[in-house]
């Protein structure tokens, strides 16, 4: 296996402040990012994602331990040496005044140039390659201020790529993007790990994105630890559930995300009789009504494909209807009747 591009060795991160006790946010963390890996850094707000990222990129010194970049201690590298190995994109919006996308990307070559130096062929080639890799070569002459959030994000990624880094760190790259742009970005990053061979580390709140796309997940917990592993291992071993599922939340394995735990009267189990996508969305509706899809002799739900779908429920109460909206209403009505709620809302309302 390749040597890690970035390693954290016995790393403790936090804040050392004058005349106040030191705050240790993360303790004794061991991590390794290998070339070509896409790594998602996840964790609840306030657990220390930003602190870890800032320490990994050298924006703040570690309290203890080391960050090794390409085998060199980060603290021993000059800012320029570091900038040739490590590139970042930040969440803060940039306002560069009047600059084209290409000019912004060319700033990524600064670590390779003297303060007066003109762009060499090698610099121009690196900028061209970065523009192509990030899929923004069509935008190269457009002013950055004219671009959409998604396009600007990609230009900033291209600028980072122009640094030809061994490690690319993206802070919340999906934060301001809509669903389609997020998926585009994910596909691009996956492609980039292959084309550039860089290790890409990104922090995200999008749990589904992390579990579906990442080669490795770094899970920051509330207890000052970071758990690293394949997404499936962390999900299967309940590590994700432990960190994210609080009082009212539970981890839904099928959806690969955290859902609101049902603390209302639990509904019964219903056997869903449908095919393919229809079945998938019927089960979605069943869950939303507080029921669970499964095997049941008592409750059977048949759904016919169509737009909208036609459904028929068999059991103690028979009903049928068109559209999943009426199905959910029907299932909830049954729960309400069956529960004989001593503290139910139905009685209080009347």
């Amino acid at each position: 296996m390749n040597a890690p591009a970035l390693r954290a060795v016995a790393l403790s991160a936090g804040y050392r402040r004058r005349r106040r006790p030191t705050t240790t946010v993360l303790r004794d963390v061991h991590l390794a990012a290998r070339p070509g890996e896409l790594i998602a850094l996840i964790g609840p707000n306030g657990a220390g994602k930003s602190t870890l990222l800032r320490t990994l990129v050298g924006a703040q010194p570690p309290l203890a331990g080391h960050v090794l970049l390409d085998g060199h201690d980060l603290a021993s590298l000059s800012p320029r040496q570091r900038a040739r190995r490590l590139a970042v994109t930040l969440t803060e919006p940039v306002d560069v005044g009047q600059m084209s996308a290409e000019e912004v990307v060319a700033l990524g070559r600064l670590p390779y140039r003297s303060w007066l130096g003109r762009a060499a062929d090698r610099d121009r080639a690196a900028v061209d390659r970065a523009l192509v890799d990030a899929g923004v070569e069509d935008l190269r002459n457009r002013p950055l201020t004219d671009l959409s959030d998604g396009e600007r994000q990609r230009v900033m990624v291209a600028r980072a790529l122009a640094q030809e880094p061994a490690v690319l760190v993206l802070d919340e790259p999906t934060a301001f993007l809509d669903v389609a742009r997020r998926i585009e970005l994910a596909a691009m990053l996956t492609r980039l790990t292959a084309t550039t061979g860089a290790a890409i580390i990104l922090s995200t709140h999008d749990l589904g994105f992390a579990l579906r796309r990442a080669d490795q997940v770094w899970l920051v917990g509330d207890d000052a630890t970071v758990t690293a592993g394949a997404p499936e291992d962390l999900a299967h071993g309940h590590a994700v559930a432990r960190v994210f599922a609080g009082e009212n939340m539970s981890f839904d394995d099928a959806a690969a995300t955290v859902v609101v735990a049902d603390h209302t009267v639990p509904g019964a189990t219903v056997r869903v009789d449908a095919d393919g996508r229809t079945r998938q969305w019927a089960e979605h509706a069943v869950r939303r009504a507080g029921w669970s899809p499964g095997s049941s002799a008592e409750h059977v739900l048949r759904v016919e494909d169509g737009t909208p779908c036609r459904w028929r429920a068999e059991g103690p109460v028979r009903a049928d209807g068109v559209g999943f909206g009426s199905l959910v209403t029907h299932l909830r009505d049954q729960t309400a009747t069956a529960a004989l709620q001593p503290h139910g809302n139905a009685g209080a309302a009347q």
């Binding site: 924006a59 560069v96 700033l107 600064l110 670590p111």
Partner: peptide, 17 residues
Amino acid sequence: QPLNALLLGERYAGSLG
């Protein structure tokens, strides 16, 4: 050149060496 980098903001400029 450093001023160009500062157009991106101080943190970006720092990350560019």
